[in-house]
Each structure stands twice: as C-alpha cells, then as structure tokens.
C-alpha cells in the first residue's frame, strides 16, 4: 500500500509543470505518462462498479479520436487550462463551508504541459484511439442554427444544463466541464451523440441520460456551436 502511494506521488511529481521527457514513441509516452490518470482501453465498468468513477483521476481517452478536435487537443496539451472547475470527481475536490460547498484548490490536480513536439505526437496518437466509431457512425446530427435567446432558454430553463455547466464564463454550475468552448474542443457528432446517450460513451458518467429526441439534441448542440463560435 505504502509503495503504491509512493508510486502515485512520484507520478504526480513527475507530471508537475516541467515538460515530460520525450519517450521513444508517442504511444510509449502516453502509456508511461498518461495511463496513471486516463483509461487508454475500455475499463471493465461492469466488474469495477461505481468505484471506478470514484477512483478516476482524468477523463477516459480510449475514444479520444472520436471526441476531440485534433488542433485543439494539440494546442491544449501545450497549454492545459482547467475545463472542469471542480475537477474530474467533484465530491473529492470540494469542501464544506458555512453557506455551501466550495472548490478546494488544494485538491485539484494540475495537468502537465507538453512541448510542441510532444503535443503533436501525443495528439496524433490519441486521435488514433477510436473505440466508439460505432456511436459516431450512428449519429445523424447536421450542424444548424438557433436564435441565441431560444438556445439559452433551452439550455437553462427547459433542460437545466446550467445546473452543472456554464455557457459563459462565470455563469452556470461548477461540477461539469464548461461548455462555452465545447464546440472548439469537441467533434460535432460527439457532442450530439453524448447529449443523446452519455451512458453509451461512459457508463459511469455524471451526465444524466436525458432521453431527448433528435430535434432537442440538435437544438442544444446548435446552441453550443453558436456560443463556441463567439469565443476568441
């Protein structure tokens, strides 16, 4: 147990702000430096049960190629900014206060920054991980438009997405990833597919499977497109 903790500490220290040493190949680099926090193959969710979600340290990457925009991924790896204000598992990153629970910055893990060369190689490798080609192939979303006021109402009042997500800086819940840059980060088909059935992507997701029909999913996705395109 102590050895395990020591290893975990060494990994975390190794993943500090200093750039990670370039390994022989991108795959080796990812497997040695990233696998401690990110799943590179589909975990046995059924056998691990909900403890898998509690123990998770970073988003699963075994479908990174179905999820991310490659240019964004390469750029983010060089300059990682926090997308999830309360980290990957909010219950572990918040503390009680007099009024309500607040984020404890000491409990948040910083992501290491890669060099431009590393980021390019790692992003290329991660984009090759496409466990959920099936879900992308099944998706029929075609980008469209929505009036901003309607999109806002749909996001907040009608579907309650703002309980966990922010659609502009400083507005919205903190437990989910911010969504004002979702369109820049994520592939449109992934966004639509994930909204429609997040459990198919991640059986232990904290995103409720809403049962929204295609039209409702498209309206939400088009709103993320609208606000994402407004971002610098």
């Amino acid at each position: 147990m102590k050895q395990g903790i020591l290893w975990a500490a060494l990994i975390l220290v190794g993943l500090g702000s200093a750039p990670v040493a370039l390994a022989a190949g991108a795959e080796e680099l990812v497997r040695t430096e990233c696998a401690a926090c990110h799943a590179l193959e589909r975990p046995d969710y059924e056998a691990l049960g909900i403890q898998e979600r509690i123990d998770r340290k970073g988003p699963p990457l075994y479908y990174a190629g179905n999820k991310f925009q490659p240019e964004w991924l390469e750029s983010w790896l060089q300059n990682p900014t926090r997308l999830r204000p309360a980290g990957i598992f909010p219950a572990a990153a918040v503390k009680e206060s007099e009024e309500f629970d607040v984020i404890d910055p000491d409990k948040l893990i910083e992501h290491p920054a890669l060099t431009a060369e590393q980021a390019s190689e790692v992003a290329t490798y991660l984009m090759s991980l496409r466990h959920h080609d099936d879900l992308i192939a099944a998706n029929t979303y075609e980008p469209g438009t929505i009036a901003k006021r309607m999109g806002q109402l749909n996001f907040s009042k009608f579907n309650g997405c703002d309980a966990c997500h922010s659609d502009e800086p400083g507005y919205g819940g903190l437990s989910g990833p911010e969504l004002y840059t979702a369109w820049q980060r994520l592939q449109p088909a992934f966004i639509a597919s994930f909204i429609a059935d997040p459990v198919a992507w991640d059986p232990h997701t904290l995103m409720p499977k809403s049962g929204l029909n295609e039209g409702a999913v498209a309206r939400l996705t088009n709103y993320l497109k609208l606000i994402g395109e407004e971002q610098p």
Partner: peptide
C-alpha cells in the same frame, strides 16, 4: 454536486 457533501441541499452548484 447539488445536494451537498452533507446532504443539506448546499452543493457546489447551488450558486447557479
């Protein structure tokens, strides 16, 4: 996230 660590309805999302 919403109901609070202690369950008092005071989770981290409450201000939103």
């Amino acid at each position: 996230q919403c109901h609070g660590l202690s369950g008092h309805g005071d989770g981290v999302n409450v201000p939103a």
